[in-house]
Amino acid sequence: MNDRQFCKAFCDEVALREVPLGYVLKTPFRRDDGDAIAIYIRRHHELDAFRLEDDGQTIGYLEAAGVDLDADSRFEALTDLMREYAVHYDERGVLLHTGYVHEANLPALAVKFSAFLLRVYDLLLLARNRVRSTFRDDLIAMVESQFGASCRIDLNVPLQESMKDYVIDILVRSPGNRVLAIYAGTSEMKALEALLFWRESREQKVQHVRSMLVLEEAKPRDIKDRTLSRVMNSDILLASMDGEEIAIRRKMEFNLLN
């Protein structure tokens, strides 16, 4: 083992090219879309100094992927990182950038800035909708494995024509025409949708359907206590996924097939 091999692994992919703004440095690190993380080097002619910038898309990329930087703790996480790495955010230019330094200090700064950008991309892992999407997918997979062979399963459909505005996440119909309308409790909105559907079913005297709201965890952060109380006080079946998969399967089966 020698340090040259490690050095080679780190440096083989590094490349510097000229662009109208200055230079672009390709780092050996990759984003989750497979492209290398790139650092742009802008020259300040009067100061004869340089600063490092992202491509001007990092913030937009995070927000488009569901990270809500305006509203919650992820913004705090970003500002903590910026403080730690002495990086600034130019709101008008939508740019993350360092201060200006002399050319001799650029390589060391580039290593630090690469680490910063990598950690910023890790904020994606905190994107709530990514977690929600996984939970919803897990729930669908569980329902399909439980009832796929014996029942008809539809996703994102209304129960019937007279309730066409009430779209249900997972609709399971048994051969005996009993129906389970399952909502993935990923948000306040979903819990309210389940409540509205339940009330409309009661209003229209629909007898053969049970509504069910499945939560990811017993104390959901995104659903207000009052809404959850209303669900508990209704006839909606309430279930929580955290470690209770077998019990949920049993509950679904009991209410669908009995």
Partner: peptide
């Protein structure tokens, strides 16, 4: 319109 994006705009600076 991409439903997963929360904000009104996709943020890009004047260079874009």
């Amino acid at each position: 319109p991409l439903s997963q994006a929360k904000n009104k705009n996709y943020k890009f600076g004047p260079d874009y």
